[in-house]
């Protein structure tokens, strides 16, 4: 007993000494200086974009790109207004397909991970390998057939034409529906992996005990696994929301044109402020911030959850 207390005391003393010395060592100062310098490096492009977005043309010419407009006359929020008018429908569209496909991904991925992790059967590793390989497949390898599938074979817009007469429904929702299904399908592999990483650490005893008591596979899922996966659902929501919101290649190919009523925020941003006279940088920066706003908010509020999703 005494031995233990001595070691803890010693350890405490050592850390206290370390803290005292840490406070003054040059290495420590250098370390923090480096870390703060790196903060500058990672934030500079974003900060520069922010100050540029509120500069008038004169302000743009007369200040350094990383400094805020120093004269009150050089400040204008007009570009934000213009960018918002362009992007607002895109933001609505992005929300319309991002939220449903995030939820669908989470539900289907959790189910798949459960069926492949907590219920044991031979050959499941092969199915699992196909799921995991699906994470890494480049979208280029499927994009032409995908385009064919939606535009030539499914033609949801025409097939569901009876719906568009209904209130609150519009023809371009067909494209939104296509995007929901597409994003769900391609999100399933990574979400399955995320849930599996959690389910692997789940106590097997509890589940086996429940099954011996006669609980069905479904009951175990609903009563034991689902309540325990709520934290992972949060991680998946944060991570998938960001991924799907930021995605571009599917928007570009399935929606097609920035003028399409179903155009997503990223698609509209990619064509914002293009003109023969050159690029309107303040407008583009304002647009970039408006497009990034939902993901920025989610990131700032739930950074830890996002990092957890990235880690796996």
């Amino acid at each position: 007993m005494s031995e233990k207390s001595v070691t803890t005391e010693e350890a405490a003393e050592q850390t206290a000494m370390k803290r005292v010395t840490d406070g003054i060592t040059l290495g420590r100062v250098g370390l923090y200086a480096t870390l703060i310098g790196l903060v500058g490096f990672y934030l500079l492009p974003i900060e520069s974009g922010l100050v540029t977005s509120i500069k008038t043309p004169t302000g743009l010419d007369n200040t350094f790109p990383f400094l805020p407009p120093l004269d009150a006359g050089w400040i204008t929020f007009e570009k934000w207004q213009v960018a918002f008018d362009y992007l607002a429908p895109g933001m609505v569209n992005s929300m319309l397909f991002t939220i449903p496909s995030t939820i669908l991904c989470a539900i289907l991925g959790s189910m798949a991970a459960y069926g492949l992790t907590l219920v044991d059967w031979r050959g499941q590793i092969a199915v699992l390998a196909l799921f995991i390989a699906g994470i890494f497949v480049p979208y280029q390898a499927v994009i032409v057939p995908l385009f064919q599938f939606w535009s030539q074979y499914m033609q949801l817009g025409a097939r569901l034409s009876f719906l568009w007469g209904l209130p609150l429904l519009e023809p371009h929702y067909a494209t939104i529906l296509e995007l929901i299904i597409t994003h769900t399908a391609y999100g399933i592999p990574i979400v399955t992996l995320l849930f599996r990483s959690q389910y692997k650490t789940m106590s097997n005893e509890m589940i086996e005990a429940a099954r011996l008591d006669g609980a069905s596979v479904w009951r175990v899922y609903r009563r034991i696994v689902l309540p325990l996966s709520i934290p992972m659902f949060a991680v998946v929501f944060i991570f998938q929301f960001t991924q799907i919101w930021n995605e571009f290649l599917f928007s570009l190919t399935i929606i097609g044109s920035t003028n399409d009523p179903a155009a997503s925020a990223t698609l509209i941003l990619s064509g914002l402020g293009q003109s023969l006279e050159g690029t309107d940088y303040p407008l583009r920066m304002a647009g970039a911030f408006i497009t990034a706003l939902p993901t920025l908010l989610v990131y700032v509020l739930f950074a830890d959850k996002f990092a957890e999703g990235v880690q796996t």
């Binding site: 492009p45 520069s48 540029t52 940088y281 583009r284 920066m285 990034a292 920025l296 990131y299």
Partner: peptide, 30 residues
């Protein structure tokens, strides 16, 4: 620190491309 270093990864490429076009601008890029 970790949150700040990871921040760019949470942004869309379409968004970061706008920032870098401005960074790399010939006349008054940083």
């Amino acid at each position: 620190f970790r949150t700040i270093y990871l921040l760019p990864f949470a942004l869309s490429f379409i968004v970061t491309a706008q920032f870098w076009r401005w960074m790399y601008n010939v006349n008054n890029g940083i």
